[in-house]
C-alpha cells in the first residue's frame, strides 16, 4: 500500500503547474512514496525535546540600514522580459476562461 494516492500527486503537480502524463504521475507517486517512507524512518527518533531547526547557522538579526541605493536602469530591468509594453512587463491573460 503506497503512502500517497494518485489524486495527491495530481494535486501537488497542479500546485507546481506541472502537466504530467499518467506514466509520469505513477513514477512520481513511487518516488514520493519512497521519500515518505524514509521520513518514517526518521520519525522513529524521539525529537520531542528538540527545537525545530529552520537554519543551521547560529546567526540571528542580519540587517541592512534603511538607505535607498541605485536601482537597475529600466531597460536593464526589462531586458529578460519575454514580452513588454513600453516600460511595463506584459503578461498573458490572468483569469482562466
Amino acid at each position: 500500500m503506497m503512502k500517497i494516492t494518485l489524486a495527491e500527486v495530481e494535486h501537488v503537480a497542479r500546485l507546481a503547474r506541472l502537466e504530467l502524463t499518467l506514466e509520469e504521475k505513477e513514477r512520481m507517486r513511487a518516488q514520493l512514496d519512497s521519500i515518505l517512507s524514509h521520513i518514517d524512518t526518521l520519525n522513529e527518533l524521539d525529537t520531542s525535546a528538540v527545537e525545530p531547526t529552520s537554519h543551521v547557522l547560529p546567526m540571528t538579526n542580519v540587517f541592512r540600514e534603511d538607505e535607498a541605493t541605485p536601482s537597475l536602469a529600466q531597460e536593464a530591468a526589462l531586458a529578460n522580459a519575454p514580452d513588454r509594453h513600453d516600460l511595463f512587463f506584459r503578461v498573458p491573460r490572468i483569469l482562466e476562461e
Binding site: 535607498a68 541605493t69 536601482s71 529600466q74 513600453d86
Partner: peptide
C-alpha cells in the same frame, strides 16, 4: 514609511516611472 524596500536597497517611494525602482532581489 521606510526609504528603501524591505529586502533590498531600491527606493520605496510612491509614484516613480514604471519599473524604475527594481533590482535583481525585487525582480
Amino acid at each position: 514609511l521606510t526609504r528603501s524596500k524591505i529586502f533590498c536597497g531600491c527606493s520605496a517611494a510612491f509614484g516613480a516611472p514604471p519599473n524604475s525602482q527594481t533590482c535583481p532581489v525585487c525582480l
